[in-house]
């Protein structure tokens, strides 16, 4: 790799700085508010619920309505993979490792078959 590939344009570093700062603002605001929160109190529970609600919304949005690279795969592949994962999850007493491996395995095989023009 030449130095252009390694370092790149300064504008891109500036953009990275802005994006990193804009992300850290959320984390730091949380750290400031956390001073007033009692562990295990009602507010603590409520904020945990907000975090889980937002994370679940983000993940289900990425699976159903992705943008970018995942959007280049068909919805049915993502759903079949997810269903395979939950089947294993139910069969293996809620063990996450086999569930995750099955989901990604099914997804990878489908994506590869489409790449090779079989599907």
């Amino acid at each position: 790799m030449d130095s252009g590939v390694i370092w790149g344009k300064w504008e891109l570093w500036g953009l990275l700085g802005l994006v990193s700062f804009a992300t850290y603002v959320w984390r730091a605001t949380g750290a400031t508010i956390a001073v007033r929160i009692v562990p295990d109190g009602a507010m603590f529970q409520w904020f945990s619920c907000l975090a889980y609600g937002m994370l679940a919304g983000l993940i289900s949005r990425i699976i159903l309505l992705p943008v970018g690279i995942l959007a280049e795969t068909p919805l049915v592949d993502r759903l079949v993979a997810l269903a395979a994962g939950f089947l294993v999850f139910a069969a293996f007493k809620r063990n996450m490792l086999p569930s995750m491996i099955s989901a990604v395995g099914v997804f990878g095989v489908l994506a590869a078959l489409r790449d090779f023009g079989v599907l």
Partner: peptide, 11 residues
């Protein structure tokens, strides 16, 4: 998501 996450972890 980091906002509610840090509020619910740091305490």
């Amino acid at each position: 998501r980091f906002l509610p996450m840090s509020i619910s972890m740091l305490p």
